Each structure stands twice: as C-alpha cells, then as structure tokens.
Amino acid sequence: MSRYRTNTPKPLKELVKDFLDDVPYRKRLKRGMILSLWDETVGENIAQQTENLRFENSKLILNVKNPAWRHEIHMKRFSIAKKLNDQVGEKIIKEIIVRS
C-alpha cells in the first residue's frame, strides 16, 4: 500500500499499471480489455467479419462469416496478437485461432 502514498506526483499510466498489478483477477480483466479493444485494433472491415470472440486459456478464439476472411485474418494473427498484447501491457494472447 505504501507505493500509493508518495509526495511526488506519478503519471496516471503508472498508477493504473500499479493498481492492475494488485488486482486478483488481473488476467481476466485484461482479457476483457482485449475484447473491448478488438474493433479498434483490427479495423472496421475485419471487425465486421468476426463474431463470437472468446478466450480459452491463453488462446483467443473467433469465428468469421466468410472463408476468405478466415484466411486473411489467419495470415495477420501474429501481428494482431502483438498489437493487442502491447495495448494491455502483457502477453495475454499466445495464439489466435480463426474458425469459419
């Protein structure tokens, strides 16, 4: 608790990180953050084609409406995972599985 009580101001980003490190269900919270950041991160075209996003352990599973989009997202899965992990500041997604 002492790290929250200082006489010098800290950046809000650092305070939020400290708080999240203490939250008991931090990974679950960050998974929710990833799901809420999905549309913004992948863009409107991919977001419109994906549905039923969910986590199974460290795998992000999603369904697509069209097999052509499945291939497109499958090819970009590593860069998408990196962007999302970077946004939450932790490697939450270890693999993205795309199903049609």
Rank of each mutant, 00 (worst) to 15 (best):
R3L: 06
R3Q: 10
Y4W: 15
T6E: 11
N7D: 08
N7A: 06
T8Q: 13
K10L: 14
K10D: 10
K10C: 11
P11L: 13
P11N: 12
P11D: 07
K13Y: 09
K13S: 11
E14F: 11
L15E: 14
L15T: 09
V16S: 10
K17A: 14
D18Q: 13
D21T: 08
D22A: 10
D22E: 14
V23G: 07
P24V: 02
P24G: 04
Y25P: 08
R26F: 05
K27E: 14
K27M: 12
K27C: 11
K27H: 12
L29Q: 04
L29V: 15
K30N: 10
R31M: 11
R31S: 04
G32E: 03
M33H: 13
M33Q: 15
I34S: 00
I34V: 07
L35Y: 00
S36N: 12
S36W: 11
L37R: 01
L37A: 12
D39K: 14
D39V: 04
D39W: 13
E40R: 08
E40D: 13
E40Y: 13
T41Q: 01
V42A: 03
V42G: 02
G43K: 05
E44T: 12
I46L: 04
I46D: 01
I46Q: 02
A47N: 03
A47E: 03
A47C: 03
Q49H: 13
Q49S: 15
Q49V: 10
T50Q: 02
L53N: 02
F55Q: 01
F55W: 02
F55I: 05
F55D: 02
N57G: 06
S58M: 12
I61E: 08
I61D: 06
L62P: 01
N63A: 15
V64Y: 02
V64A: 06
K65Q: 14
K65I: 10
A68T: 11
A68L: 14
A68S: 14
H71F: 13
E72G: 07
I73P: 06
M75R: 15
K76D: 03
K76S: 04
K76V: 07
R77L: 09
R77E: 00
F78M: 07
F78N: 10
F78P: 03
S79E: 12
L84S: 01
L84F: 05
L84M: 03
D86G: 13
D86A: 13
Q87G: 14
Q87P: 07
V88N: 03
V88D: 05
G89Y: 10
G89N: 03
E90V: 09
K91C: 06
K91E: 14
K91P: 15
I92F: 08
I93P: 00
I93C: 01
I93L: 05
E95S: 09
I96S: 05
I97K: 08
V98A: 00
S100Q: 13
